[in-house]
């Protein structure tokens, strides 16, 4: 081997350990799960003892009412929380994007929920939703109102987990929107004021369109996260009552540990994985497209004068 070839290979040599770890930690489990989804496998068996059933796990899922319900709950949950969080987060950012005393403190307070461990958030909300000693029902009680069955009624429970998620993740959208707002071209906003735009017109016609690329990526990131949510709901309702809050990750967990159907659980995981990959791909394509666009624009302005 010549020195030149050796030189060319050196970087790859340095990258090799990382690549091995990546293969071991990422690719191996994925292949494992894909393989497992073709098996009829229960936890008392070693994987080698499980019988191969082909696509039967997937076929079964498509006609499994509980799984379909869980998929529906997950989609509804993700759609609702992300919509609400987007509106609240962007709204708050628009409201707090100004230089006022005390705002720095306020902004810091706003992002605290995001930094709390999900398990803790779940526990906290469970106590607050407690039917008798929770702060909500105590408050309602002291106002002379009927208590609300926060976690024991299926509609209320669904609302309750949405509220908790909105509380925890609105700050994420808030800080990203705020950062986007503060990087907007100041003079274009001033030009809009001179051109006669009122506050809301500047928001509608200038700020939001200019923030759009960041908002789209933020929304996709949040969607990906909302599909994977687990701990908070696990602690608060464990999927109940009934199947009302049983989002996919809980269903997967239950299928594996309670129903002892590892193959089916693996198939579900793969379906979730497909959804997430579609979202990630959408985000990737969007970023690529907007990068290509700005490159094209940059190229277009070079020659002419």
């Amino acid at each position: 081997m010549s020195v030149a070839t050796a030189n060319r290979l050196t970087p790859y040599l340095f990258l090799a350990p990382a690549l091995v770890i990546l293969l071991g930690a990422l690719v191996y489990p994925i292949i494992y799960v894909i393989y497992a989804s073709f098996l009829d496998w229960n936890p008392s068996q070693r994987i080698g003892e499980a019988s191969f059933v082909g696509l039967r796990n997937y076929a079964k899922l498509l006609s499994d009412a509980a799984f379909l319900e869980s998929l529906r709950v997950t989609l509804a949950f993700a759609a609702i929380v992300v919509s609400v969080e987007m509106v609240l987060g962007v709204g708050l950012a628009l409201l707090l994007d100004r230089n006022m005393k005390g705002l720095t403190v306020l902004r810091t307070v706003f992002i605290l929920p995001m930094m709390i461990a999900p398990i803790v958030v779940g526990l906290m909300w469970r106590y607050m939703y407690h039917p008798t000693i929770g702060i909500f029902n105590r408050t309602l009680n002291s106002l002379g109102l009927e208590p609300v069955p926060w976690l024991s009624d299926s509609s209320w429970a669904f609302a309750a987990v949405i509220i908790a998620d909105v509380w925890q993740w609105t700050p994420f959208i808030f800080i990203l929107s705020l950062a986007a707002l503060q990087s907007l071209p100041k003079s274009a906003l001033e030009a809009a004021r001179i051109d006669g735009a009122r506050g809301w017109q500047a928001i509608l016609y200038i700020k939001l369109p200019l923030m759009l690329p960041v908002l789209i990526v933020t929304m996709l990131l949040r969607l990906i996260d909302a599909f994977k949510v687990l701990e908070v709901i696990l602690v608060m309702t464990n999927g109940g009552p009934g199947l009302s809050t049983e989002i996919l990750s809980l269903r997967i967990n239950r299928t594996a540990s309670e129903f002892r159907a590892l193959g089916e659980a693996a198939a579900m995981s793969n379906i979730l994985l497909l959804v997430l990959m579609a979202l990630t791909l959408a985000m990737f394509l969007y970023t690529k497209a907007s990068e290509a666009r700005s490159r094209r624009l940059a190229a277009a302005q070079e020659p002419a004068t």
Binding site: P185, S187, A188, E190, A191, A192, I206, P209, L210
Partner: peptide, 9 residues
């Protein structure tokens, strides 16, 4: 404006 302040979009 000095930097023209056009609306980029």
């Amino acid at each position: 404006f000095q930097d023209y302040a056009l609306y980029p979009h």
